[in-house]
Amino acid sequence: MDGGIVNTAFVLNNPPADGTEWVELFVREMMSATSTNDARARATIVLESLEKSISASASAEAAQNFHKENMMLKEQIELILRDNIILKRLVAIQHERQKEHKDDRNQEVQQLKQLIAQYQEQLRTLEVNNYSLKMHLQQAQQCNSIPGHFHPDVF
C-alpha cells in the first residue's frame, strides 16, 4: 500500500482488528493522497472496506446468535415434548383410575339398589305379619269367654 491506492482485497482479507487500527489506516491513506480526488477515492475504498467488514462481522454475529437461539429453542422443545409425554401418561393413568372408580361406584350403586329392594320387601312382609298378628290378637280377645283381663300365663 505504499504510495498507491489502498488495496480493497488486502483490507478485507486482513481487516484491522479494532477501531484504532481503522483510524490509523484511514489517516495513513489520507496522508498518502496526492490530491482531493485521490483522497476521496482512498476514503471511499477505506470506508467501503470498513462497511463490508462491519457487515461481515454483524452477519457472523447474527448467525452465531441465531444458532445459539436455535439450539436453546430445540432444547426447550425437547423439554416440552418430554413434559407432554409425561402429561399424556398421567392423563391416561388418571382416566383409567376414574374408569375403575366409576365401575366400582356403579357396582356399589347396584348392590345398594338390591339391598333397598330386599329391605323394602322385608318391610312389607313385616307390615303384613304385624297386621296379621294384630288381627289374631283382636280375634283372640273377642273370643275370650272369661270376662276381665287375666294374665295369659294363668290359663
Rank of each mutant, 00 (worst) to 15 (best):
T44Q: 03
F150K: 11
S49P: 01
V23L: 11
I5L: 03
K102M: 08
N84P: 04
C143F: 10
A41I: 03
I80L: 13
P152H: 13
E96V: 05
V6M: 04
Y119S: 07
K74S: 10
L137A: 07
S49R: 00
A117Q: 13
V6C: 05
A117M: 07
V154R: 05
A58W: 11
M1Q: 12
K134A: 03
S53Y: 01
F26H: 02
V46D: 00
V27W: 07
V128G: 00
V109D: 02
S53G: 01
E96R: 11
P152N: 02
G4T: 04
L137G: 11
E21S: 13
A43C: 03
N70H: 13
A56R: 08
L133E: 07
F155Q: 05
L133Y: 14
N7C: 09
A56I: 06
A140Y: 06
Q139M: 09
E100W: 08
A17V: 15
A56S: 14
Q138V: 12
Q98W: 04
Q107E: 09
S145Q: 15
I86F: 06
K68A: 14
V154K: 00
S49L: 00
T8N: 06
K134C: 02
V154C: 02
V154Q: 07
R89Q: 14
C143I: 06
D18L: 14
R89H: 14
S59V: 07
F66V: 12
A62Y: 10
Q118Y: 06
I86E: 06
V11G: 00
A117N: 04
Q98K: 08
V109Q: 07
K102D: 06
N37Y: 14
I5D: 00
Q111E: 14
I85S: 08
V23N: 11
N14Y: 07
Q107I: 08
S49A: 15
K68D: 04
T44A: 06
G148R: 08
T34C: 03
Q76G: 05
A41H: 05
Q139F: 09
A140V: 02
H151I: 05
F10H: 12
Q94M: 10
E21R: 12
H136V: 04
H67W: 15
I45N: 00
D18A: 13
R97T: 11
D153C: 12
E24P: 01
E78S: 12
I86K: 07
Q122D: 08
T125D: 00
Q141T: 08
L25K: 01
E48Y: 03
T44V: 05
A39K: 02
E121D: 10
N129E: 11
S53H: 04
P15N: 15
D38I: 01
Q141K: 08
N37A: 08
F66T: 06
I93G: 01
I146E: 09
E69C: 02
A56F: 09
E69F: 01
K102W: 10
Q138R: 14
L47E: 15
E100F: 08
N65Q: 13
A33L: 01
L25M: 12
L81H: 12
Q98C: 11
M1Y: 10
E108R: 15
H95L: 08
D104F: 11
Q64M: 10
V23W: 04
A60F: 15
E61Q: 07
I54G: 09
F10L: 09
D2S: 03
Q120E: 13
D153I: 11
